[in-house]
Design a protein around this nucleic acid. Structure first.
Lengths: 205, 205
DNA sequence: TGACATATGAACCGATCGGTCCATATACTG
DNA sequence: CAGTATATGGACCGATCGGTTCATATGTCA
């Protein structure tokens, strides 16, 4: 591999970007997160991302592709964050509880009104659009995988019966999570949200 | 009150409608139910309702008003159905379980892919649109009220601790319901959906 | 400096959006 | 029959939709 090829692969020729693609992606994600896919227009995105239409198409490809990128970006960030939390948690059970307590704490806050991008998208599209069905299912899957790991740890720590069906429990937690977020998104008050956590946890113990 | 006034109030003058407003409303509800509000176009509605644009506007007022009518219609029908079920159920607890078992049974079926119009709308709009926030909140409220009645009955029947917080429990059930529907909408398999019901019920017992 | 490669903004595209208007059709009334 | 009130279909509206094209700006390289 000669030098010129190496340069071609590691640096961009021509005029450099005037914006940070990562930041722009974050801005787009925020808009999709708040308004959903259908209700978000190109104009909304351009305004939030601070770039021109041609830049958006050249860099991200279009509305659909941009949304897919945002969806994956959201998953990655969310999954990484939860994994870190799980690793730092005193116990698997504590991790699960603290996740729900954090979600409950977003009640009546802007963060709560946005919901979860994956859950929002799951509700907006279901399996209607084959283009989005896969990344959405994958997002739910990843959340389930984290809960599965947490339940497994809780079982090893003796907080959950070893005989319990990890997968079923993890799926239940995903369901409980999205349900709680839906209610919070609809304006559930903080007290009620908090009261829901121990009820949700009953299925785990 | 003379005869002519009476006639004016009880029957319509001029050319009669060529369609059944109730049926048309059902058709519109179906479309909104499947695709959501934003993704549904006037053309979609006209095709499903089998009427012309002018008829739609004259009879129902426009997309927003039509959606609101559908939302209320859905609530009424759903609430009435559940109330009947509750009255016929052998016990409050059995009612709750059977509702969840019915929802779980829609997994991998067209009915499951549609979700619940109220839950769908709650997720699509949250509190973003003040025009829809009220009917959506009302829909969730009505479901909660039914669950509250069921829990109350279960308490009287000794299946639920008398000391339990009925309202909190009812809200939990609404949350569990919407969560389950979200997952089913995303393609959860029938077996997994069924396995979730006893876990959900753990919070009640 | 000049060749080159990419980025950018603005003009432009056809399609579709939700919504209005009006001429005509169709019923009931006297 | 004429008069009246409503329903209907189709033409039409401006706005916006997502997307494309292209001339120009701006950087790197030899």
């Amino acid at each position: 591999m000669n030098r010129s090829v190496h340069i071609l692969m590691t640096m961009t020729l021509g005029r450099p970007l005037e914006f940070n693609p990562e930041h722009a992606l974050d801005a787009a994600m925020e808009v999709f997160w708040c308004k959903g896919y259908e209700a978000t227009s190109l104009a909304d995105l351009l305004a939030a991302m601070h770039l021109s239409k041609s830049s958006l198409y050249q860099t991200f490809g279009g509305k659909q592709e941009l949304f897919q990128k945002c969806l994956l970006r959201y998953q990655d960030r969310f999954a990484r964050e939860l994994t870190v939390q799980l690793n730092h948690a005193p116990s698997g059970l504590q991790f699960i509880r603290s996740v729900f307590e954090w979600v409950a704490s977003t009640a009546q806050e802007p963060a709560g009104a946005k919901g979860c991008l994956v859950a929002n998208s799951a509700n907006e599209f279901g399996q209607r659009d084959p283009v989005f069905a896969k990344p959405i299912a994958q997002g739910l899957q990843r959340l389930e995988a984290i809960f599965t790991a947490a339940v497994k740890r809780a079982q090893q720590e003796g907080d959950v019966a070893a005989s319990a069906d990890r997968t079923a429990l993890a799926r239940y937690l995903v369901s409980a999570m999205t349900g709680l977020r839906t209610l919070i998104k609809s304006g559930l008050d903080l007290r009620s949200a908090g009261a829901m956590v121990p009820l949700i946890m009953k299925a785990v113990r």
